[in-house]
Nucleic acid binder design. Structure first.
Length: 256
DNA sequence: CTTAATGTTCCCCA
DNA sequence: TTGGGGAACATTAA
C-alpha cells in the first residue's frame, strides 16, 4: 500500500504527535505481526519518527521499531481498534494502531536504524544515480522496484516515473544513455515531491495517520488507466506484466 | 470462480 | 555473483 510519498505523509503527521511521548504498553492482536516482542519498548520514549524508503522508523533512546506497511498496512493515531487492528501501542496521551488487512506488514524491533538498502531517491545526486544505474543490467521497471537500487519506489511510482521520463518499462539499463538516466532522476524527484504535496495516492487501502485519503491518484497518468487515452498523445494506455507486477505505459511515448 | 491488488522473500535455474 | 521466474504469504473486491 505505501510507497515513499505515502510513508512520508504518515511520518510528517506522526512525528510532531509522537515525539517525546512514552510508550505505556504494546499489545499484539495477531501472532504474525511481529516475531521479536515489541512489547519490550514499553517504558521508552519516542525520540523521532523517520522514513526509511517506504518504511516508518520509530526511534527510541535505544533502537527503535521499524514498521513495514506491506500492501495494506495503516498507522492510525487515536483510532478505535477494528477487525484488522494487528497491534495497539498505548502512549502517554495517545494511541497508535497498526491495522493491516492482508498481513504482509510487520513490526520489527531493531537495535539500530536499518541499513543496507539503496539510497533515498530524494537525496541521491543525479551523477550518483546515473553511476549506479550504469552498474546494472536489467529492465528499468525491475530496477526501480529494487529497493537495493533506490529505496521507496513501488509499483505506482515506478510506472508514473517511467512515463514521465519517456522510458519503456522493459528497456534495459545497459542501453539507456546518460542523458536519459539523468532525466529519470529528475522526473523521479519531481514526481515524488509532487505526490507528497498531494499527500500520497489512495487506490484502495492507503490512508494517513488521521485516516485521510491522499489525493495524488487523480493525477496518475498511466497507473491503473489501462485503455484510457495517454494524456500526452492519446494512444491507449497499455498494461503488461513486468517483474511480476502489473505495468502501465504508453507504447507511443515510451519507445523501447 | 478467477484474477488482481500501493510488497517482500525464498527457492530454483541459467 | 547476478539476473529472472515462480510461489508463498492473507484478504478483499471486481
Amino acid at each position: 500500500m505505501p510507497e515513499l510519498p505515502e510513508a512520508e505523509t504518515i511520518v510528517r503527521s506522526l512525528r510532531p504527535r509522537l515525539a517525546g511521548r512514552r510508550v505505556l504498553s504494546v499489545r499484539l492482536l495477531s501472532a504474525r505481526v511481529s516475531r521479536d516482542r515489541p512489547e519490550r519498548i514499553a517504558g521508552q520514549t519516542v525520540r523521532d519518527v523517520r522514513r526509511h524508503g517506504k518504511r516508518v522508523w520509530l526511534a527510541f533512546d535505544t533502537g527503535g521499531l521499524l514498521v513495514k506497511l506491506g500492501m495494506t498496512g495503516r498507522l492510525l493515531a487515536d483510532h478505535p481498534p477494528g477487525p484488522y487492528t494487528r497491534a495497539r501501542i498505548e502512549l502517554d496521551g495517545m494511541t497508535l494502531n497498526f491495522d493491516d488487512i492482508r498481513q504482509f506488514g510487520s513490526l520489527q524491533l531493531l537495535d539500530a536504524e536499518p541499513a543496507g538498502m539503496g539510497p533515498d531517491p530524494l537525496e541521491i545526486s543525479a551523477e550518483e544515480f546515473a553511476a549506479r544505474l550504469r552498474g546494472r543490467d536489467t529492465q528499468l521497471k525491475r530496477l526501480l522496484l529494487d529497493q537495493t537500487f533506490v529505496r521507496g519506489i513501488g509499483n505506482i511510482y515506478a510506472d508514473e516515473a517511467l512515463f514521465r521520463a519517456g522510458i519503456h518499462p522493459l528497456a534495459r539499463t545497459r542501453r539507456l544513455g546518460k542523458d536519459r538516466a539523468l532525466r529519470l532522476h529528475r522526473v523521479l524527484i519531481e514526481l515524488l515531491e509532487l505526490a507528497i504535496r498531494h499527500r500520497g495516492s489512495s487506490i484502495s487501502d492507503y490512508v494517513d495517520a488521521a485516516g485521510e485519503r491522499g489525493g495524488f491518484q487523480s493525477l496518475h497518468q498511466v497507473y491503473g488507466r489501462e485503455g484510457e487515452p495517454c494524456p500526452a498523445c492519446g494512444a491507449p494506455i497499455r498494461r503488461i506484466v513486468a517483474a511480476q507486477r502489473g505495468t502501465h505505459f504508453c507504447a507511443r511515448c515510451q519507445r523501447r
